[in-house]
Simulated assay, not measured.
Amino acid sequence: MRKRSHRSRTVLAIAAATVLGLAGCDASGGDAPAPKGAAAKARPSPKPTPAWDRSPQSLVAVGDSITRGFDACAVLSDCPEVSWATGSDAQVNSLAVRLLGTSGAAERSWNYAVTGARMADLPAQMAQAASREPDLVTVMVGANDACRSSVSAMTSVSSFRTGFEEAMDTLRESLPKTQVYVSSVPDLKRLWSQGRTNALGKQVWKLGICPSMLGDPDVLNSAATLRRAKVENRVEAYNKVLEEVCAKDRRCRFDGGAVFDYRFGTAQLSHWDWFHPSRNGQARLAEIAYRTVTAKKPVV
Results as ranks from 00 to 15, higher is better:
90 A>P: 09
76 L>K: 14
114 V>I: 03
133 E>N: 15
73 C>I: 14
118 R>T: 11
149 S>M: 07
177 K>V: 12
89 D>P: 11
150 S>T: 15
169 D>C: 04
85 A>H: 04
101 G>S: 04
102 T>Y: 05
140 M>W: 04
149 S>L: 07
100 L>N: 03
68 R>D: 12
84 W>Q: 07
174 S>V: 14
157 V>I: 13
70 F>D: 01
111 N>S: 03
87 G>R: 09
113 A>N: 02
144 N>H: 00
75 V>L: 13
72 A>P: 10
165 E>V: 13
77 S>L: 11
138 T>A: 09
117 A>G: 03
112 Y>A: 08
126 M>E: 02
79 C>Y: 05
77 S>W: 07
172 R>E: 09
88 S>F: 05
127 A>V: 12
145 D>Y: 00
149 S>F: 05
145 D>Q: 02
79 C>H: 07
150 S>I: 08
107 E>Q: 09
140 M>P: 05
89 D>C: 13
107 E>S: 04
151 V>A: 08
112 Y>V: 02
176 P>D: 09
102 T>K: 15
113 A>I: 02
127 A>D: 10
120 A>T: 01
67 T>P: 08
168 M>I: 09
76 L>D: 15
117 A>Q: 01
89 D>N: 13
151 V>E: 00
79 C>A: 14
105 A>D: 03
168 M>G: 03
75 V>Q: 15
120 A>C: 01
147 C>N: 00
88 S>P: 05
102 T>L: 12
131 S>H: 08
129 A>V: 04
84 W>L: 09
78 D>S: 03
148 R>D: 10
134 P>T: 07
185 V>E: 01
153 A>F: 08
151 V>T: 10
176 P>Y: 14
129 A>K: 05
74 A>I: 12
138 T>Q: 03
155 T>A: 06
184 S>N: 00
94 S>T: 06
152 S>C: 10
131 S>T: 15
180 V>I: 14
135 D>I: 06
71 D>Q: 09
109 S>G: 04
169 D>F: 04
113 A>P: 03
68 R>M: 12
111 N>Y: 02
157 V>N: 02
138 T>G: 04
131 S>R: 11
95 L>D: 11
131 S>W: 05
178 T>W: 10
91 Q>K: 15
170 T>A: 12
137 V>P: 01
134 P>K: 04
148 R>G: 09
80 P>A: 09
135 D>A: 14
151 V>Q: 01
74 A>E: 15
156 S>T: 15
120 A>G: 01
167 A>I: 15
169 D>I: 13
104 G>D: 06
71 D>H: 13
125 Q>E: 04
140 M>N: 14
81 E>N: 13
174 S>M: 09
175 L>P: 07
126 M>V: 02
132 R>D: 10
183 S>Q: 05
95 L>C: 11
68 R>V: 10
88 S>W: 11
73 C>M: 14
139 V>T: 08
129 A>N: 00
165 E>I: 06
105 A>K: 06
79 C>W: 06
